[in-house]
């Protein structure tokens, strides 16, 4: 089985978010980049399939050379090879189209994306990729079992979960639940050494255009200080919530 895991290079979850060039671009100064957490859940699930049934795991990112350290990390975690499509990922449709071109060339049985990236939070690349390829998509995926070419999956829905079935190939949007945090693989020395020998190829992007552009960024307005209520006066809190905030 051939598995493709789509990896987004995102600022570490604790990063301070700042913008530069007149709020037109993200300020990477002092920001550490990580594998998008949802993608790491997906990668771990793929590695399990590799260990169990010898699946071949390829990771791919659409991005410039600054994304290579996280691809190397994916290789150290256990992916067999990495591909970098050399383009700036400015729009979800553009990324999905680049990934679709790759999937048209190589045949992947299973394509794993993250539920959403924690930078754009678009939750769009997976669904778009599946639609461009005309194959099924399962969002917010929390369980996957594969038997031959049939897959049974679970999707988290508001207030519960849903069980689904489909035939491969398909695209899924991974999130916590597909594997747990404690299952994540921390690369060891051997993995890191091996990763240096594994192939990381750079491909030229295909000729597609995005559909949206970001004009500028803005940070939320600074919030006023918290109004403290004495622990002995919970009445006051209730009254404030009723009459001032008007939420009760």
């Amino acid at each position: 089985m051939n598995i493709l895991v789509c990896i987004s290079n995102v600022p570490d979850t604790t990063s301070k978010i700042n913008f530069k060039d007149d709020n037109k671009s993200f300020d990477t100064n002092g920001v550490q980049f990580i594998i998008n957490p949802n993608d790491e859940f997906g990668l771990t699930r793929a590695i399990w399939l590799q260990q169990k049934s010898g699946a071949k795991v390829t990771v791919v990112t659409v991005g410039d050379a600054s994304c290579e350290p996280i691809l190397r990390k994916c290789l150290a975690i256990g992916a067999d090879q990495a591909i970098r499509i050399d383009a700036i990922p400015e729009d979800g449709y553009f990324v999905a189209s680049q990934l679709a071109s790759l999937c048209a060339k190589e045949k992947y049985d299973l394509i794993i994306t993250g539920r959403e990236s924690i930078d754009y939070n678009g939750a769009m690349v997976g669904g778009m990729l599946a639609s461009i390829l005309s194959i099924p998509y399962v969002a917010n995926c929390i369980q996957l079992d594969i038997d031959g070419t049939s897959a049974s999956l679970q999707r988290e829905i508001d207030g519960g979960k849903e069980s689904l079935s489909a035939t491969l190939p398909l695209v899924l949007g991974a999130q916590k639940g597909l594997v747990e945090e404690s299952d994540l693989i921390i690369p060891n020395m051997r993995g890191i050494m091996q990763a240096r020998q594994k192939p990381l190829t750079v491909e030229t992007p295909s000729d597609v255009e995005g559909q949206t552009t970001i004009q500028n960024f803005e940070k939320p307005q600074a919030k006023g200080p918290v109004k403290l209520v004495d622990a002995a006066n919970v009445d006051t809190l209730i009254e404030l919530l009723q009459n001032e905030a008007k939420v009760l």
Binding site: I17, Y120, I214, Q215, N216, F217, E218, P220
Partner: peptide, 11 residues
Amino acid sequence: CYTNKAFNESV
């Protein structure tokens, strides 16, 4: 965007 740490104007 950025998990609610920022907004953007998209066109």
